[in-house]
Computed example of a mutant assay.
Amino acid sequence: MAMFASVASAQTRPFLQFQHTGWTIQNGAPSSITRLAQTTDGYLWLSTVNGLFRFDGVSFEEYRPPHGQQLAHTGITSLYATSDGGLWLGYTLGDTGFLKNGVLTLQSFKGHVQGHAGTVNYVYVTHDGTTWAAVEV
């Protein structure tokens, strides 16, 4: 998997005139990226089957919750950045988490669905603040 960023102007130019940078596993980019989201602080967050990573424009860092907190699972299948600086996480095993100001809150759908809740494929927050999750059961 490779990531690319481009800076373009309003004018049409040949592709070779664009400024672009690519990041690969050799540059520290994680493998098996499932989703991308950018929070209001400028970080680009990457969900993977092996955890959560953030990118500051220069380097990649695996996210490790503060002491006493933990990710529900390493398999993260969806991300949604909120306008107030938070980040929703959807997991492969039916849980969600919300990360804001260094605090990670976990929520589970297992009590709401018969048996295994399934993979949280998408999380979305509406304009009125209602949070929706598309779960594959």
Score class of each variant (00 low, 15 high):
Pro65Asn: 13
Leu46Tyr: 07
Ala81Glu: 12
Gly75Phe: 02
Ser108Val: 01
Asp56Asn: 15
Tyr43Ile: 12
Gln69Arg: 09
Gln70Tyr: 04
Ser32Asp: 14
Ser108Asp: 12
Leu89His: 12
Trp23Arg: 13
Phe60Pro: 03
Asn121Ser: 13
Ala81Cys: 10
Gly85Trp: 00
Gly86Arg: 11
Ala117Tyr: 01
Thr92Trp: 00
Leu89Glu: 05
Ala117Arg: 05
Gly85Tyr: 01
Arg64Ser: 15
Val103Thr: 14
Ile25Asn: 08
Thr77Gln: 04
Gln69Ile: 00
Leu44Gln: 05
Asn50Asp: 12
Gln70Arg: 02
Leu52Trp: 02
Pro30Val: 07
Thr105Ser: 08
Leu44Trp: 01
Asn101Ser: 14
Phe53Gly: 01
Asn101Phe: 01
Thr82His: 10
Gln69Trp: 09
Gln114His: 11
Gly102Glu: 03
Thr39Gln: 09
Gly94Gln: 05
Val58Glu: 11
Gly90Asn: 09
Gly68Asn: 04
Gln38Leu: 03
Pro65Lys: 02
Trp88Ile: 10
Thr92Lys: 05
Arg64Cys: 12
Leu106Ile: 13
Leu106Glu: 11
Leu93Ala: 03
Tyr63Gln: 05
Gly97Trp: 11
Leu87Pro: 02
Val58Tyr: 05
Gly85Phe: 00
Thr74Ser: 13
Leu106Asp: 00
Asp56Ser: 09
Asp41Ile: 06
Ala117Pro: 08
Ser78Val: 02
Gly118Asp: 06
Gln107Met: 05
Thr74Tyr: 08
Gly111Tyr: 04
Gly28Ala: 09
Ile76Val: 11
Thr39Asp: 07
Pro65Glu: 12
Leu52Gln: 01
Leu79Arg: 07
Gly111Asn: 13
Gly75Val: 10
Thr105Lys: 08
Ser31Met: 03
Gln70Lys: 09
Arg54Trp: 02
Lys110Glu: 15
Leu36Trp: 12
Tyr63Glu: 00
His73Gln: 14
